[in-house]
Amino acid sequence: MDIRLIYYDFKNLKTYFYVPIFIIYLFIPVLSIGMVKMYGVENSKIMIFKEVEKFIPIISMWWTTFIFREYIEGDGNELLYCINKTGKIKSFQIFIIFLCYVLHVGILFLVGNIFWDNILFEFIKTVVQCFFFTSAIYVLIYTLKSTTISFMILLIYALFSLFINSKISQVISIFGNGDILIMNIISTKSLKILFVSTILFIIGVYKNKVFY
């Protein structure tokens, strides 16, 4: 797997490439500044991270979805699986796209670190949530053979978990909904999500392998 392919994958996205960039570097900072102005730096911290949680994990599947539209639904996509044997499994591509996203999220959190202390736990929690969505989209696109339907399913899941207050949504939700993060939460809930995400990723590799 050559890293230059991912460069062209991103280039092929055209304006779609800029959606996560816009969310990370413009929308969230503007939203945060507004909240800080309204509630002050310390009081706004939990509220800001609660809002951040509504966008960053979901948007983590954006690039994967649109890049993999070519791999799943593109005319002649079989060429991308048959030219060499090692090129059949796209897990490395998925992982690199995920890392690119995490890098941008990391920059956002690095800037956040100037204003708030101890946001490392928030960052770890967010990365784990992003990994969950990345793994889930990986499984779904190779199972359903449709990037749009896969994206919609995960979007509905996220909206249900975030905005519907029911017992089911509490059980299946990977979101913290403004919980104050302590080491205990990271080592229990986030670890569970990480475990589930890893299982999903492995299933994704299998589904990818049997795609053709």
Binding site: Y8, D75, G76
Partner: peptide, 25 residues
């Protein structure tokens, strides 16, 4: 190999498209 349908990476230029396949090959 030329499959039945071909039309990948429509937002790339012809040169970039072929470069993609050069890298794959």
């Amino acid at each position: 190999y030329l499959p039945q349908k071909f039309g990948l990476f429509k937002e790339l230029t012809v040169y970039e498209n072929l470069k993609y396949f050069c890298i794959l090959k």
